[in-house]
């Protein structure tokens, strides 16, 4: 009896087991409420991964920032700004794809680095600095787009519309490869996860991120450039937002200045469900991957069962609380 308890205590003290159990619980929901077998089709899982990828990219950056004990509220707005920029460059200005991608990524990195600079250099609280960036970037998206979606219907001076063809880059990214089995967007997301994993687990700067979030003063005194560490975290977060913005634009075939509204909350929820603590210094990108997939499955299961909006919101709230409470129980 005590042996069994010790065993479970040991197993559940492992953070990845706790992160996994939320996913298992949601998967069980899917197996029970399978919408006439739809949950057992491979395409359901393939589509889930694609749908959740844009949020997942935001959650990657959010994980880095939260590990430094910060927060990035601007991710949704920077996504919207990036989607608009990318669409203007490709659809209206007919720039080559590489140039449009490069400029969009640079703009994302610039937004993130600017937030990081306000936090590191001017000692603004991350909540305040990124709140300002959230408002500013949304304004910039609306300004550049004139408040309208940037689409293949291009307004001419005389009020008529000219229709441009969708550039090839759109179908290249919004497309499935490997025998129709995985979306390019999902691969981009997994690439972001890999990049974060390399940084956090293999590189010295990854340890700097944990050290800065764990105890900034101690980190600074032991010679870690905490300011540069923050610039890196927020800059990378901005870059992931830009990637997410490009992926959002190609999937919508337009740049919507309202795109990404409230996505920051979903991204934070994904990180937290994975078990990365909001107080910083702890967590990891693979936990976030579990959190991303957990939310992805939850949304998919609610959607294939055509559950009403009201019940969806309540269930999502309950699952977030349950997952986090579960992480808190140290031992069974």
């Amino acid at each position: 009896m005590t042996k069994a308890r010790d065993f479970f205590g040991l197993v559940f003290s492992k953070p990845w087991v706790r992160a996994l159990s939320a996913l298992v619980f949601v998967a069980l929901l899917g197996i029970i409420f399978n919408a006439e077998g739809t949950f057992f089709k491979w395409s359901t899982h393939r589509d889930m991964l694609r749908q959740v990828s844009v949020y997942g990219m935001l959650a990657c950056g959010m994980t880095l920032v939260i590990i430094t004990s910060g927060i990035d509220l601007s991710v949704g707005s920077v996504l919207g700004l990036s989607a608009v920029l990318f669409s203007i460059a490709t659809l209206h200005l007919a720039w080559p794809a590489w140039l449009a991608i490069a400029v969009t990524l640079l703009a994302g990195i610039a937004c993130g680095t600017l937030s990081g600079a306000m936090i590191a250099r001017f000692r603004m609280q991350p909540f305040v600095a990124t709140l300002a960036m959230m408002v500013f970037a949304r304004g910039a998206a609306k300004y550049l787009s004139g408040g309208q979606k940037v689409s293949t219907a291009v307004a001419q001076a005389d009020g008529t519309y000219k229709y441009v063809d969708l550039p090839r880059i759109f179908s290249l990214i919004d497309h499935r490869i490997l025998g129709d089995n995985i979306a390019v967007v999902a691969l981009i997301f997994l690439g972001c996860v890999l990049l974060c994993w390399l940084l956090l687990a293999k590189l010295r700067w990854g340890r700097y991120l944990y050290a800065t979030g764990g105890n900034e003063e101690a980190a600074r005194l032991s010679g870690i450039p905490t300011g540069a560490v923050k610039l890196l975290a927020y800059g990378l977060s901005g870059m992931f937002c830009a990637l997410a913005g490009i992926c959002q634009a190609v999937q919508e075939q337009q740049g919507d200045p309202e795109a990404g509204t409230s996505y920051e909350l979903t991204a934070i929820a994904m990180v937290v469900i994975g078990g990365t603590s909001l107080s910083g210094g702890r967590g990891g990108i693979l936990f976030t991957l579990l959190g991303v997939v957990t939310i992805g499955y939850l949304e998919k299961i609610l959607s294939i069962n055509a559950v009403g909006e009201a019940s969806r919101l309540m269930l999502t709230g309950i699952i977030i609380v349950a997952a986090v409470l579960f992480q808190k129980t140290k031992k069974a």
């Binding site: 919408a35 999937q251 294939i304």
Partner: peptide, 17 residues
Amino acid sequence: KWLEPDARKEMESALAV
């Protein structure tokens, strides 16, 4: 909710079912 990305998600479910 009037939103295009949400419409795409829901439609994918409708098509799957």
